[in-house]
Amino acid sequence: MANDPIHQFHIAKWIPIEVGGLDLSFTNASAFMVATAVATGAFLYMTTSSRGLVPGRLQSISEMSYEFVASMLRDSAGSKGMKFFPLVFSLFMFVLVANLLGLFPYFYTVTSQIIVTFALALLVIGTVIVYGFLKHGFGFLKLFVPSGIPAMLVPLVVIIEVISFLSRPVSLSVRLFANMLAGHITLKVFAGFVTSLSAFGAIGVVGAILPLLMTVAITGLEFLVAFLQAYVFAVLTCMYLNDAVHPGH
């Protein structure tokens, strides 16, 4: 088990629940989803409870994340896109905190499950489609017909645009999922080298120094990846929402 890099992704039922043949058990993954939501919500709530005019360090973190996401959304979707701010902020904070929590030893990485990232990506694309049609009606379909192309090319371009639109939820979810999965497997493999090499006595211990250094370096890199993937997810969400707000490019 110590050297199995896949073991960390196994889902363990903590409270078995079954409704109509569906397995809805409360698992370790569920626990970390709840932990992510509660920890983030509690942090944002408690750090701002004093409503300090001059913010403390923790209140600054909350305010900076607020302004960070707000400026990201305003830059890509304009002030009309600000109605989606709670959604983008929730997605960003949820993914970020889930990624970061996953870096603790023995903690479950919620975002290493394709179904979770795919559900979040579908939420984004679903919001884009529903809002786009509600707001613009069939004018939303102008999204697939960029202005200023020769009439001959229109069918080809429309096909390409539709394919690229449909691949968005896939790329959005697989990017996050694959990054978290690969990072954690790499980390586990290098850490596994350390323990298996040091089992071979003194020479093995010396040989284990390199994988140990790699493990430390990759841990640092994973913190960067955790933030970066949350940021990428949020930025792409903003750009897709921009299509819903302003369909004609």
Partner: peptide, 17 residues
Amino acid sequence: TYASQLLWLAISFGLFY
């Protein structure tokens, strides 16, 4: 495991949102 994950994601993320 998908049904359970989707349910708990919907609950936790929904309430979080």
